[in-house]
Simulated scan of single mutants.
Amino acid sequence: MSSDGSAPRIDRDRDEEGRARNARPRDGLGRPLPHGAPGVERLPEGVVRSPEETLTEAQRLLDAGMPFHAHEILEDAWKSSAEAHRLLWKGLAQLAVGATHAARGNHTGAVTLLRRGAGNIEAYQEDPPHGIDVAGLLRWAHAQAEELAAGTGGLPTPRLR
């Protein structure tokens, strides 16, 4: 408590608009590192990309073992997409977060996000936009969730197309 009885003020990193942003460096799986430590370059937030650019960059990051960073790319698409495809991009971002949790050893979180992401992309299976392999991603997500829930298996890289 401060001298006036209120909770002490905690200074937080903020962006130009005043929103809280963690400026600490991050490792390849998105975990914060101590200030001043070398980390993986952060991707700018809120970038509007074409679906082609989004899928290419997200796949590159997934292939590099950086699912947290792939999630950030997919999250930008989710937040800037038209309503018709919003759940698709949200689900893809959730699959990447599930892969992040699995890579960090949080199998419970991974199972939850893989199942949630699969549920969000399922409606796009019959007519998948942008060449996305929705059926393959569903198979991947369900198989990985089952294996992680059972405490077995590794997490192969998902193929978006």
Score class of each variant (00 low, 15 high):
Ser2Val: 07
Ser2Met: 11
Gly5Tyr: 03
Gly5Cys: 01
Ser6Gly: 14
Ser6Asp: 15
Ser6Ile: 11
Ala7Trp: 06
Ala7Glu: 07
Asp11Cys: 00
Arg12Gly: 00
Arg12Glu: 00
Arg14Phe: 00
Asp15Ile: 00
Gly18Glu: 00
Gly18Met: 01
Gly18Thr: 04
Arg19Ile: 00
Arg19Asp: 00
Ala20Lys: 00
Ala20Val: 00
Ala20Cys: 05
Arg21Cys: 00
Asn22Ser: 15
Arg24His: 09
Pro25Cys: 09
Asp27Trp: 08
Gly28Gln: 13
Pro32Ile: 10
Pro32Asn: 08
Leu33Met: 15
Leu33Asn: 15
Pro34His: 04
Pro34Val: 02
Gly36Ala: 04
Gly36Val: 04
Ala37Tyr: 09
Gly39Met: 07
Gly39Cys: 10
Val40Pro: 03
Arg42Ala: 14
Pro44Glu: 12
Gly46Ala: 09
Gly46Thr: 05
Gly46His: 03
Val47Ser: 05
Val47Phe: 03
Val48Tyr: 01
Arg49Phe: 02
Ser50Thr: 09
Pro51Phe: 05
Glu53His: 00
Thr54Trp: 05
Leu55Glu: 10
Glu57Lys: 08
Ala58Gln: 03
Asp63Asn: 10
Ala64Phe: 07
Ala64Ile: 06
Ala64Pro: 09
Pro67Cys: 10
Phe68His: 12
His69Tyr: 15
Ala70Glu: 14
Glu72Gly: 02
Ile73Val: 10
Ile73Ala: 04
Asp76Arg: 08
Ala77Trp: 01
Lys79His: 13
Ala82Cys: 06
Ala82Gln: 12
Ala84Tyr: 07
Ala84Ser: 14
Leu87Ala: 02
Leu88Arg: 11
Leu88Glu: 14
Trp89Ala: 10
Trp89Val: 04
Lys90Gly: 09
Lys90Trp: 11
Gly91Cys: 08
Gly91Leu: 11
Gly91Asp: 11
Ala96His: 06
Val97Leu: 12
Val97Gly: 13
Val97Glu: 13
Gly98Asn: 10
Ala99Leu: 08
His101Tyr: 11
Ala103His: 02
Gly105Glu: 13
Gly105Trp: 14
Asn106Trp: 05
His107Tyr: 04
Thr108Ala: 15
Gly109Arg: 12
Ala110Asp: 06
Thr112Ala: 15
Thr112Glu: 14
Leu113Asn: 08
Arg115Asn: 09
Arg116Pro: 06
Arg116Lys: 12
Gly117Pro: 05
Ala118Cys: 01
Asn120Phe: 14
Ile121Ser: 01
Glu122Phe: 06
Gln125Met: 12
Asp127Leu: 04
Asp127Ser: 03
Pro128Ile: 03
Pro128Ala: 02
Pro129Phe: 04
Asp133Met: 00
Ala135Tyr: 07
Ala135Gln: 10
Leu137Lys: 03
Leu138Pro: 07
Arg139Pro: 12
Arg139His: 13
Trp140Tyr: 15
Trp140Ile: 06
His142Val: 11
His142Ile: 13
Gln144Arg: 14
Glu146Pro: 15
Leu148Trp: 05
Ala149Trp: 08
Ala149Phe: 11
Ala149Tyr: 01
Ala150Cys: 12
Ala150Asp: 13
Ala150Glu: 14
Ala150Arg: 15
Gly151Gln: 10
Gly151Ile: 05
Gly151Cys: 05
Gly153Cys: 06
Gly154His: 13
Leu155Ser: 14
Leu160His: 03
Arg161Leu: 12
